[in-house]
């Protein structure tokens, strides 16, 4: 997917939110978008998702299946979680089994009968993520997905995104809290002054060795998680007692 000289502003007399933006998003890549509040991160993501149209320039090669999770999931709707996701799955032509899969993966299976307005902020955020993920999107766009999430889901999400990217999904995430910082092979874009520039930290970074000590019974699972997050894992006999 490619943006060619894209420019956007919300009103004719307002200042440009983005201007002269030319970018490429390779398939299967993870891109983290950073910038201060109001810099234009969400606008860039909405342009990528096709929710907004650029006033100038073009966006080429957007996949047909796009998953988009907004910064604030609109929970003020008269549905239960299960009912809402069932409607969203039907819109995307996906069977309801995808709902239980993602509800279990994101640990909110017990919330399926709960009404959307009764959800906490973090639970609503999970529903927002699930509706974006159920379609097996070729382009996944997440606007501040870590905000309000519980610690476990927040820790699991980078590995999940890396796993999707490994299967060919192009992932673009705005991340104010820098939760993707540890994820290797991540492209970083910085939005400021109506322009989007590659982050100075972009490019291949040198590798280092980090020792992780886990109980022997959990070693295989931990290795799988780490590999899914994009790390190289080598197992060796531990010479520690603890």
């Amino acid at each position: 997917m490619r943006l060619n000289d894209v420019a956007f502003r919300y009103h004719r007399r307002s200042s440009w939110v983005l201007r002269n933006v030319t970018l490429s998003f390779p398939p299967g890549g993870v891109t983290e978008v950073t910038g201060r509040n109001g810099a234009g991160k969400s606008t860039l993501l909405r342009l990528l998702a096709g929710i907004r149209r650029p006033l100038r320039g073009t966006i080429e090669g957007r996949p047909a299946r796009v998953g988009y999770a907004p910064e604030r999931f609109p929970a003020d709707q008269p549905f239960t979680v299960g009912g809402y996701l069932s409607h969203m799955a039907a819109m995307r032509g996906v069977p309801d089994t995808a709902i239980t899969t993602w509800a279990e993966r994101l640990a909110f299976g017990d919330l399926l009968p709960v009404r959307l307005p009764d959800l906490s902020k973090g639970s609503a955020q999970k529903v927002g993520l699930a509706q974006a993920l159920i379609a097996d999107p070729a382009l996944l766009i997440l606007d501040e997905p870590f905000a309000g999430l519980d610690r476990t889901t927040r820790a699991d999400l980078p590995a999940l995104l890396a796993e999707l990217a490994a299967h060919g999904t192009t992932v673009v995430v705005s991340d104010h809290q820098r939760c993707l910082e540890a994820l290797p092979h991540t492209n970083r874009l910085h939005v400021a002054d109506a322009s989007v520039t590659p982050h100075p930290g972009n490019g291949p970074s040198p590798w280092t060795v980090l020792e992780v000590i886990v109980p022997a019974a959990e070693a295989a699972a931990a290795a799988t998680d780490l590999r899914a997050a994009g790390y190289r894992v080598q197992r060796r006999r531990a010479d520690h007692d603890t």
Partner: peptide, 13 residues
Amino acid sequence: PDEQRALSATAVG
């Protein structure tokens, strides 16, 4: 809600 209108439009493509 406005945000849901965007999600619905994204879902139907």
